[in-house]
Amino acid sequence: MWKYLTRLFHRFASPPHVYQLAGTLSPWLMIPGFLLIVWGTWKGLFLAPEDYQQGDAFRIIYVHVPSAYLSQMAYMVMATAGAIGLIWRMKLAHAVAASAAPLGAAFTFLTLTTGAIWGKPMWGTWFEWADPRMMSALVLLFLYFGYMALRAAIDDVAKADKASAMLAIVGVVNVVIVRYSVEWWSSLHQGQTLLTDEGPRMSEGMLAPLLVNLLGFTLIFGGWLLRRVRTEVLFRERRAAWVRKMMAAEGAHA
C-alpha cells in the first residue's frame, strides 16, 4: 500500500506525466460541467418556482452561490497546494497553486458583482460593509491580488513559489480573523440585522437546479484548473528535453 502511494506520488511529481494526464482529464470535466450548467441554469431560470418574497430576483443564486463556494474552494486549493509544495518540495504543487489564483480571483469578483446586483433590489444596497460574508469576500479578493502581485514581482520561479505559498497560508488565518472581527463589529451596530434574515427555506424545485449548478461549476473549475496547470507546466519546463521533443513532433505534423 505504502509502496503504491509513493509510486503515485512520484508519478505526480513527473511533469510530462502530469501534462498528459491533465490533458486527458480536462475535457472529461469541462464537457459534463458545461452540460450541467446549461441544464441547471435552464431549470433554475424557467422551471423553478418563483420565490414568494423575492419573486424572480432570487434566481441569481444559481450563479452567485456556486461562484461564492468556488471563490473559497479555489483559495483552499491554492493554500493547500502551496503548503504541499513547501513541505514536500513538490514543484508541481506550486504550479497548481499558481494556476488556481486567477481562477479564484475571477470567481470572487463574480461573487461580489452578482451579490451586488442581487443586493440592490433586495436589501436596497450594492454593498454592505457590516456584513461578515461580504467583507470576507472583499478581503479574499485583495488577498488574491496580493498573491498574484507578489508572484509577478519575483523573477525567480522557485523563490516566487515559496514566498507566495507562505502568503497564502498567512492569508487563511486572516480570512478567519476578518470574519470574526466583522461579526463583532456588526453585532454592535444594531439595525443592520436585515442581512441575517435569509428568507424562507428552499423548496425542492429551487434546490435541485442549485445542486446541479454547484456540481457543474465545480467540474468546470476543475477542468479549467487542469488546462491552466498544463500551460504552467509547459512554461516552467520550456527548456526540458521532453517539451522540446514534443514541440518538434508538433512542428513536423504542421
Binding site: 467583507m135 478581503v139 485583495f142 488577498l143 491580488f145 496580493g146 502581485a149 507578489l150 502568503l167 498567512v170 492569508g171 486572516n174 480573523i177 476578518v178 470574526y180 472581527s181
Partner: peptide
C-alpha cells in the same frame, strides 16, 4: 502595502 493592508484590516 498591497500584502500588509488586507492583513491589517481586522
Amino acid at each position: 502595502s498591497l500584502l500588509v493592508l488586507p492583513l491589517a484590516m481586522p
